[in-house]
Amino acid sequence: MRLGIDLGGTKIEVLALGVDGRELLRSRIATPQGDYPATLGAITTLVRQVEGELGCRGSVGVGIPGALSLATGLVKNANSVCLIGKPLQQDLENRLERPVRLANDANCFTLSEAADGAAAGARLVFGVILGTGVGGGLVWNGQVWPGANAIAGEWGHNPLPGETEAPPCYCGRRGCVETWLSGPGLAADHQRAGNPALSPEQIVAGAAAGHPACEATLQRYEARLARALAGVINIVDPDVIVLGGGLSRLARLYERVPRLWGAAVFSDSVSTRLVPPRHGDSSGVRGAAWLWGPDGAGAAG
C-alpha cells in the first residue's frame, strides 16, 4: 500500500492506493495554522488512522508547499512559512518509523497528471499550480525532474515581463509571477484598477455576467499568464502544460491563453498543448503516493 499526503496551506489530505493503483481510502483535516509541531502531529495521526482502518502499513510520500534544500535537508521556499528551516523529512521519519519521501506539491501534481492524467504519454510535462500561490513542476519521461538546486519549475518567483508595477512577494522579491497570477494576485489587480474588493470567484462570476470591469481584469490575467508561460516554453519547450489549482477551473484560459502566447514564443508556431487536469484536486495527493513505486521501493522521482 502507498500513502500520499498533500500538505496544503488550509488542509492536509491522505490517500491510500493499493498495489494496483486503486484508491482504498481518503481522508482530510484542516492544517494547523502556523504551528509546526501541530502539523507533524496531524500528519502522524492521519497516517495511523488510515493504517489502522485498512489493517496494513504503507510507504509514505508527502507533497509540500516548498522544497528540501540539497545543502541542509531543511525546508526552503515554502509559502507555509512555519515549515521553512525545519527538518520535516527527518521529523516525519522519526515519528512514523520508516523512510518518507518528500517532493514539492507542484511536482506531485505534475507526476500524477503525467502518469495517467491529462498529459499521459507526453515526454516532457510542465505542471502549473494557480491557487493561493503559483508553483510549477517538471516531469520527464515519467520521472520528476527536481533540478540541481531542487527548484526546477519554480517559475512563480521569476519576475513577470512587461509590467511597470512590482507588487511585493512573500519571498522578499517584488513583481514575481505569483503576485500577479495567484488567486490573491488576481483579486489585488482588480482592486488596483479602481474596482471594489472582490474574491477571484466573484470576479469570474462578474465577467460571466457581462460586467466590464471584471471582464477587463480577466483579460489582463490571461495576457499575463500567456507571457509567463511563453517564458517557460522558450526555456523548457514542454509537450504539454497542465494547469492546476483553483484558477485552472476557468475554462476560457485553455482557448484564450494559447492564442496570446505565440507573440512571446521564439518560434514560428507553437505546438505545446495547454490542458486542464484530469484528476483535479486529487492530483497532488495521488502524485505524492506515486513517489514510491508499486512495490514501495522504486522511486518515481
Rank of each mutant, 00 (worst) to 15 (best):
156 G>H: 00
76 K>Y: 10
54 L>P: 06
168 P>E: 14
192 R>P: 04
107 N>V: 08
62 V>N: 03
43 I>C: 03
237 D>I: 08
79 N>R: 09
171 C>H: 10
8 G>Q: 00
273 R>K: 11
270 V>D: 04
266 F>P: 07
217 T>Y: 04
111 L>Y: 07
94 N>G: 10
224 R>K: 10
229 L>M: 09
299 A>W: 15
68 L>M: 04
210 G>L: 12
117 G>I: 02
289 A>I: 02
34 G>N: 07
10 T>R: 03
152 A>Y: 00
181 L>H: 03
240 V>R: 00
102 L>I: 07
184 P>S: 12
91 D>T: 04
128 V>G: 06
154 E>H: 08
202 Q>G: 04
216 A>Q: 15
249 R>F: 14
53 E>H: 13
94 N>A: 15
142 G>H: 09
247 L>S: 03
76 K>N: 08
46 L>G: 02
185 G>F: 04
151 I>G: 08
57 R>H: 11
43 I>T: 00
87 P>G: 05
253 L>K: 02
72 T>N: 07
200 P>E: 08
113 E>F: 05
92 L>S: 06
226 A>W: 02
76 K>L: 12
161 P>K: 05
235 I>N: 09
280 G>A: 05
141 N>C: 15
128 V>C: 13
164 T>N: 14
11 K>L: 05
76 K>G: 10
114 A>G: 12
15 L>S: 03
183 G>I: 12
256 R>N: 10
94 N>H: 15
